[in-house]
Every structure is written in C-alpha cells, then in structure tokens.
C-alpha cells in the first residue's frame, strides 16, 4: 500500500506523534478512573447497600454513547483533548468499580480474620492484605478498561480531529485513501494488544503467588456448615 505511513498534513502530526497522543488520551483517563474507583469501591465494600445503586447508575453512564457526551461537553471544555478524556475516565470508572469490589470481596473470610487477629489495623489490612489479593481481579478490570479506552479515543475524530489515530479515519474518507483507515485500525489494535501484554506482565510481577498456566478449579470447602438461611426462610 502506497502512502501507508504518509500522514496528511492537516493533522499537523507525525505517525509516532499520533501514537503518543493516542496513548495519552487513552491512558490518562484510565488512571483517573482507577484513582476514583479505588475509594468508591472501598465504600461499596464497607457499605453493602451502596453497591447495587452505584452499579445501576454507573451502568447507565456506561450506556450513554461517547459521541453524545463529547458533543455536550464541547460547550464546557471546547474541542480539546479534555473533552475526549472526561467520558473515557467515566467509562473506566464504571468497568473498574465492580472489578475492585468483586476482587476485594473474594478475599476469604478466614484470611481477613487471621490478619485482624495478627493485629492489622483497618488501613494496613486494606493495603497489605485485601488489595494485593484483589490484584488479579483489578488487573482483569484494567485490561478491559484500557482496551475500550484505546478503542474509543478514535471517536474523538468526529468532534474536530480530537481522535489521535482516529483522525486518520476521517482523512481516509475525506481524501479517499482507504490505506489510512487500515493504518488507523491496525495501529490502534496493536497498541491495545501491547498495552494488554504490559498489564499481564504487571499482574504476573505483582502476584508471584498465583499458580501459572492452568488455574485449578476452585474446590468446595470440605465440610459444609449447617445452612442458616434454611431456617429463616
């Protein structure tokens, strides 16, 4: 394909410049989402009743098409990167909250009791016991958030060339150069896969205690306690 890397001059950027821009527009929102999700998730773990409404509200946010949010935000933040990044941060938050809540909740009751008995305070227990054990679940959420964030940045092209690599899509149509669209899709996909690989690496580094390769089927506790619900129903 001729001119595959020949970036039209209206984008005012090089190929690698677009990649850098794309990564920044995609990853900063995930980071912001993660920072917001951690305390929110902890609240949901602490106050169980909070979780269902939070889940409901965030799911509806998630369903609002990004383009619509971009358009509305233009009024406040203009045709800027920030306009693209705000909704992406919200989407990341939505993906990460349930991932963190489920991860923290999956820490076995006995482990918590043991750490309390050893004299861990609530904060230390959260940072040194609950969070590390929840790492695999949180990383799984991050993988989804990063992939969708990288994919969604492209939509920013529709509000005036704020889509980084996505801007190539608009130019592909404008100048009738399909190879630019191929470039955009492939580069975005490769970026997503590379970021995913980095996250898997991070997970493996952070969780040296996890068995590698085939995970074992969770085995039911050997003896079941007498069910308490049965009597109450």
């Amino acid at each position: 394909m001729n001119g595959f890397f020949d970036i039209p001059s209206d984008l005012d950027n090089t190929y690698f410049g677009l990649i850098g821009l794309h990564l920044r527009e995609a990853l900063l929102p995930v980071l912001a989402g993660l920072l917001a999700a951690l305390p929110l998730a902890q609240l949901c773990v602490r106050f169980r009743w909070l979780y269902p409404p939070v889940l409901g509200v965030t799911t509806v946010f998630y369903a609002i098409p990004s383009l619509a949010v971009f358009v509305v935000l233009i009024d406040y933040t203009g045709q800027t990167e920030l306009t693209v990044m705000i909704p992406l941060a919200v989407y990341s938050l939505v993906v990460l909250v349930p991932a963190i809540v489920d991860g923290v909740r999956s820490v076995p009751e006995e482990t918590l009791a043991a750490s309390t008995a050893m004299g861990f305070g609530p904060v230390r227990r959260y940072l040194q016991v609950q969070l590390p054990i929840a790492v695999p679940a949180i990383l799984a959420g991050l993988r989804v958030a990063v992939a969708s964030s990288i994919s969604l940045v492209s939509v920013g092209a529709l509000i005036g060339n704020q889509g980084a690599l996505g801007n190539l899509l608009a130019d592909a149509q404008k100048y009738g150069r399909p190879e630019l669209a191929v470039n955009s899709v492939l580069t975005t996909a490769v970026l997503a896969i590379l970021c995913d690989a980095v996250l898997v690496l991070v997970r493996n580094l952070l969780t040296p205690w996890m068995p590698r390769g085939r995970r074992q089927r969770p085995k039911e506790a050997a003896a079941r306690p007498e069910p308490q619900e049965a009597a109450a129903k």
């Binding site: 003896a223 079941r224 007498e226 069910p227 619900e229 049965a230 129903k233």
Partner: peptide, 11 residues
Amino acid sequence: RYPYQLSGGQQ
C-alpha cells in the same frame, strides 16, 4: 428443598 438448604450429612 434445594441442596443448599441441607446439612452435609443430609446431603
């Protein structure tokens, strides 16, 4: 009843 409502011995 369903199994979860039974004790281990009953199961």
